[in-house]
């Protein structure tokens, strides 16, 4: 599903965020990217979403090389991804509902469908009652959950989540982990980064550990 081969990402500052990384994520796999802050987790996820371009090596998603993909085809590839950003990237000038509806509007869903799907997604993150709310009035954890709702509302085949549980209380973190598990069960491919893998408990995940941009462990799927 997603393959990084020999990928190095060097930022203009000269620092290498990721060094000669080989990583392959199979369809339906649940991969947990672990490592300390600065290990390169966000960079790996951005490379997978085509947000960053590798300095060396190739990134392939659904058989398409992101280095050579037509710029016109990239949006359609992204519609199969659900992205949870570390900094949420919510639009503060519109309601929670409209934020979550954005991927559906972009993909051209009809209006009636949009209402149903948005409410279903908000329900799954426990924020159905905040539908009309203003994102500015939400706590960090609530904003995080809105971002998760936006990532799953269009039922993407792949979810790439960057520290989705970082701002959450333990109870909510468990709920989100439960949500990811259910997505995994219905065949969604997940790559989730975290600096606290224990929150994921006994989920059947494959842990991939990074340290200073280098892959230090690429485990098997836990049973």
């Amino acid at each position: 599903m997603i393959t990084l081969s020999g990928v190095t990402k060097r930022h203009p500052g000269g620092q290498e965020a990721v060094r000669r990384l080989d990583l392959s994520v199979a369809r339906g796999e649940f991969v947990l990217l672990t490592g300390h802050s600065g290990a390169g987790k966000s960079t790996v996820l951005k490379l997978m979403a085509g947000i960053e371009r590798p300095t060396e090596g190739t990134v392939t998603v659904s058989g398409q090389d992101l280095g050579t993909i037509r710029s016109g085809a990239l949006p359609y590839l992204r519609r199969n991804l659900g992205l949870v950003f570390q900094d949420h990237k919510l639009l503060l000038d519109r309601s929670v509902f409209d934020n979550v509806a954005l991927p559906l509007r972009i993909a051209g869903f009809p209006g009636a469908d949009i209402g149903k799907r948005v409410r279903a997604a908000l329900d799954r993150v426990g924020l159905l009652d905040r539908e009309r709310g203003d994102p500015v009035t939400l706590s960090g954890g609530e904003q995080q959950r809105v971002c998760i709702a936006r990532a799953i509302v269009h039922r993407p085949a792949v979810v790439l989540a960057d520290e989705p549980t970082a701002n959450l209380d333990e109870a909510y973190a468990l709920e989100i982990v439960g949500l990811f598990r259910r997505l995994h069960e219905v065949g969604v491919t997940l790559v989730v980064s975290t600096h606290s893998p224990t929150a994921f408990g006994d989920a059947r995940v494959r842990e991939v550990a990074l340290r200073q941009g280098i892959l230090v462990r690429s485990g098997e799927a836990r049973a």
Partner: peptide, 8 residues
């Protein structure tokens, strides 16, 4: 954000 989530 729109571009990141697939807007042409």
């Amino acid at each position: 954000v729109s571009k990141l989530i697939g807007a042409t």
